[in-house]
Computed example of a mutant assay.
Amino acid sequence: MITDPSRHCTVELQALPSRIGQVRRIVSAQLRSWHLEPLIDQAALGVTELLTNVHRHAQPDKSCTVEIELLLERLMVSVHDHDPRLPTVRPPSMSSTSGRGLALIAAVSESWGVRPSGGAGKVVWFTLPAPPFLAVPPSGPVYGATTDGPFALGPVMDLGSRAPSTERSVAVG
């Protein structure tokens, strides 16, 4: 199920390889709708790494929730699973074919972390900086001027108010 208030999107799924690609596409589409195209590659890479960790390591099941939220000038991406074991970053050997996911997330994100989720698993999250003029949902163009003449900055919303939004649901599975 996907819920989509104006600056929040949640996807519930089983972290199976076929579903991970679907979630990448959902995250990419949501970021395009928020006019955050510059963040798509980093967000898709990070969510892929987190979902791969759930697929490979989470017990007793692979069900999880991916959440993306636009918070002023930050995009927060988090994955909640039902396994209470916290991940650890360990240096992989040169011949290792896995074990670099969290290090990769640390390299491409502004910040990241993990926290227990009330005895019912954990949440692993990362943030990406969103330029202020991009980090808003559409509501209409704002115009400005340069030395070369007028230009449109694109859609901007007053961040002080939260416009009413609709909720949509899509089954992934």
Rank of each mutant, 00 (worst) to 15 (best):
R7D: 01
H8I: 03
C9E: 10
C9H: 13
C9I: 14
C9V: 13
C9N: 09
T10L: 11
V11F: 13
E12H: 09
Q14G: 01
A15N: 00
P17T: 09
P17W: 07
P17H: 04
I20S: 11
G21R: 15
Q22V: 14
Q22A: 10
V23S: 05
V23T: 14
R24Q: 15
R25N: 12
V27W: 06
V27R: 02
S28M: 05
A29G: 04
A29R: 11
Q30W: 15
L31G: 04
L31A: 11
R32Y: 08
S33A: 13
S33Q: 13
W34A: 03
L36C: 13
E37F: 04
E37H: 07
P38Q: 04
P38Y: 00
L39K: 09
L39W: 05
D41H: 12
D41P: 01
D41M: 09
A43I: 00
A43V: 00
A43S: 06
A44N: 04
A44M: 08
L45S: 08
L45R: 11
V47D: 01
V47L: 01
V47E: 02
T48A: 06
T48Q: 04
T48M: 02
T48D: 02
L51T: 01
L51I: 03
T52S: 11
T52I: 00
V54I: 09
V54D: 08
H55Y: 12
R56Q: 09
H57A: 05
P60H: 10
P60F: 09
D61V: 07
D61W: 11
D61I: 03
K62T: 13
S63P: 00
S63D: 14
S63T: 14
C64V: 00
C64N: 02
E67N: 04
E67M: 08
E67R: 08
E67I: 03
L70W: 11
L70T: 07
L70R: 14
L72Y: 14
E73M: 11
E73C: 11
R74E: 15
M76L: 15
V79K: 08
V79W: 10
V79C: 10
V79M: 10
H80Q: 13
H80A: 06
D83H: 10
P87D: 07
P87I: 09
P92V: 02
P92A: 02
S93A: 13
S93K: 14
M94K: 13
T97G: 05
S98Q: 10
S98L: 05
R100H: 05
G101T: 01
L102S: 03
L102Q: 03
L102K: 06
A103C: 00
A103M: 12
L104E: 00
A106M: 05
A107E: 12
A107S: 14
W112S: 15
W112Y: 15
R115N: 02
P116R: 10
P116S: 12
G118P: 00
G121W: 09
K122G: 05
V123F: 00
W125Q: 06
W125G: 03
F126W: 12
F126P: 01
T127N: 04
T127E: 15
L128C: 01
P129M: 05
P129V: 06
A130H: 12
A130P: 05
A130I: 10
A130V: 08
P131H: 15
P131F: 09
P131K: 15
P132V: 07
F133C: 10
F133I: 12
F133Q: 14
F133E: 15
L134R: 10
A135M: 04
A135W: 07
V136A: 15
V136E: 14
V136Y: 07
P138N: 09
P141T: 02
